[in-house]
Amino acid sequence: MLKIKDLTKTFGRYHALSGLNMEVPEGSLYGFVGPNGAGKTTTIKILCGLLMPDSGSVEICGMDIAERPREIRGLIGYVPDYFGVYENLKVSEYMEFFASCYGLYGLKARRRCTALLEQTGLEEKTEFYVDGLSRGMKQRLCLARAMIHDPQILIMDEPTSGMDPRSRFDFKEIIRELNEQGKTILISSHLLQELSEICTDLGIIEQGRMALSGNMEEILNRVDTSRPLSITVNGRVEQALAILRSHPCVQTISVKDKEMMVGFMGDKQDEAQLLQQLVDAEVPVCGYSRVRGDLETLFMQITEKDEKEVLIHEG
């Protein structure tokens, strides 16, 4: 669907992107995460044709962005990290204006606008001036605007920044809904936790390079395996410890009362087997779970590691 290969972009001497590789599968909800200044906005602007890359290629739906920019613009809906609104237009006029920018006029345009405003919960605001909307509403209006030409890919740059928890939730619901309708969505943020709830795929960008990317589940698993297994028993601790010590996947054990933290290098199958063993030995297991992988920690690990690397290079 969307393929980026060795993308580089420099501003003066500053390397904003240095060989970015990225692949967004069709129908996915792709979380594009990175700290401030990592190059998210730069990447997104290149995708939308607002910036020209220095080198590298971008392919969207099999078309090269440099060769057929106009067709590609028709496939992309862009929600920037700011609202672009006019003072003197009403919500409906604003929508119809952008519809006409895509060659949609008259009744067809009006129907489409109404449907989108309904979907984003703005149907009661059609006669309001755009300038007078609240932040959350403007953000939803921007989303509606980006959807006006029914694009295949929706690209959003930090859409939830500055929203309260309630609008954040609503917004995520809308996004999820759009994704279920078959839209491929790329959404950038520096808040990992927020994206991890809804995304199917994830890419972590760091200093203009992809630090980690892939399917959300795989990544979470990877995070999980580095996390301890938490086992709570209601008695017969010694027996449980004996079983654990003899298990090949177990690496470390720490006991605190009836709760054991086990460093466990194994997959789900191994986990199930261990539980079976414990139950067979009549250990009263009342809690058995991986400590939930915290993406934030992973994020910190990745970014930290890079910082160390940089230090080593410099020193």
């Binding site: 602007k45 939308c48 044709g49 607002l50 106009r70 613009r73 028709g74 992309i76 862009y78 920037p80 700011y82 609202f83 672009g84 609104v85 006019y86 003072e87 952008f98 920018c101 895509y102 060659g103 605007r145 030409h149």
Partner: peptide
């Protein structure tokens, strides 16, 4: 200044 130029440039308007 309204930050709409980029939006216009991403539409089908040349």
């Amino acid at each position: 200044e309204h930050r709409t130029l980029d939006l216009l440039l991403t539409t089908q308007m040349s």
